[in-house]
Design a protein around this nucleic acid. Structure first.
Lengths: 246, 246
DNA sequence: CGTCCTTTTGAACATTGTCAAACACTGTGG
DNA sequence: CCACAGTGTTTGACAATGTTCAAAAGGACG
């Protein structure tokens, strides 16, 4: 209800009336800022809707904008020597390119939309300026960045400490949590999932088969965790790798 | 020379006279701070020397202190299900546990000294308080954190996009740069290097053999890059994975 | 010199990747 | 409605890569 009121009140003041601005005001990244700082930031921020499979940025490019995913989802990926790997999926309300924006260094990853998505783009200079002038924003930024860091470290541990079968099992347990149900759809292509988990599509296909011994049922993209105890005993999830809230 | 002067001048003012405090003042992390902020921070900071192979922190523990390596080197590693992997080596003047300190979240990694090392420990609360009250420190912190993030992302790409042979080849090229010489010593146990590169010691041993076809000579821990062109052609280093300055 | 630890080597084994083909699903156009 | 192409997934046979286990060789140090 406060949100609706705000939306209504600001509806007469030009740009700030736009729904996405109101929407963004509520995000953790901006919610602690005083109104005038927020308005300054929004003045140079552009929001754009993109169709599926649209390239947003290309690795090695100059870090012109901090990106904030407002709706849909965006894949971060990287290439080397003709190979490609999926690094992460960013969903609302996540940011990407934050570290590059702050350091004013080249992008390490490319990004493309997976589905129709709306993305806010804040000029990197403005991010750095606002970081210096607004303590609440600085606070939010460093928290977001620390979160990103910890996510990548966890991903790293996942890759180095586990076999592909174990990675898949733990991924499915995390998805179970996210969906809050033991039966759910993978809403990603399996080959993308394979790339994310660091394996080939063929190997993933066999890994799904392999997990049927441990309480999993797979039909197409429909996943059923038939025996949670079994799967958990096999996967041995750890908060220091699989908990994505801290 | 300015550093020596400072050292001499502050030699009469109690705690701040200690050499490590003078030393730390010069680090990028602190050099931009006004003197009083720095003094406040140093008041609760302790510096300690540790013998080799000393555990400094254990993963899952509470993030009491931000650690700064002043001399020696520290290994960050992690365990899961009876396995262990080496995640990074921190050298002067690097920090660790920064993200955990900021988010006040459990350590994701354990740390132990590799050699005799001096480590400064700043209470995490002080780090967070100083972040809020001193803009220059906030600036330095977020830059350091962004750097850490980018390093982990690069490591991730290295792992997922390359074979173990390619990872070793690129590692050696990076070491060549760090040593500024085509002949150098590995300053690390090979089994630790293997773990860092995500493979077994046996596999590393064979990988060294395998690189002899590409211009490498190995005698014990002595590495000679006999044919840089060959090795580079094989390794195909990329700034977006192997450049650790941005 | 002997002890302890790391590294190397060999051989068997397991896992993962590659390639080719079959299959399944989706949407198009006849 | 069907045939068809296009794409993604699965399967099988095989190759490459990586791991395990055991044992030998090398180094460091008392």
């Amino acid at each position: 209800m406060p949100a609706e009121n705000l939306s209504f009140e600001t509806a007469k003041r030009g740009q700030l009336a736009e729904p996405h601005v109101v929407e963004m005001r509520g995000f953790e990244l901006f919610s602690g800022m005083p109104e005038d700082s927020f308005e300054t930031l929004m003045r140079t921020t552009h929001v754009q809707a993109f169709p599926p499979r649209t390239m947003l940025i290309t690795e090695a490019g100059p870090p012109d904008f901090l990106h904030v995913v407002l709706s849909g989802s965006v894949e971060l990926f990287s290439n080397w020597n003709g190979r490609e790997t999926s690094v992460a999926t960013v969903r609302p309300v996540g940011t990407f390119i934050l570290a590059a924006s702050i350091r004013n260094a080249p992008y390490l990853m490319s990004a493309r939309t997976l589905e129709e998505s709306r993305v806010a783009m804040i000029p990197s200079e403005e991010v750095r300026a606002m970081f210096d002038s607004d303590a609440a924003f600085a606070h939010a930024i460093v928290n977001e960045l620390a979160q990103c860091f910890r996510t990548v470290v966890k991903h790293n541990k996942d890759l180095k400490l586990r076999t592909s079968l174990e990675r898949l099992a733990n991924y499915l347990l995390r998805e179970m949590q996210r969906n809050d149900a033991t039966e759910f759809d993978l809403n990603t292509e399996k080959r993308r999932l394979a790339s994310f988990l660091g394996m080939t599509p063929e190997n993933l296909s066999r890994a799904f088969k392999g997990l049927e011994k441990h309480g999993l049922r797979v039909k197409g993209s429909r996943i059923t965790i038939a025996n949670l105890q079994d799967l958990t005993a096999f996967a041995k999830p750890s908060p220091l790798i699989d908990d994505f809230t801290t």
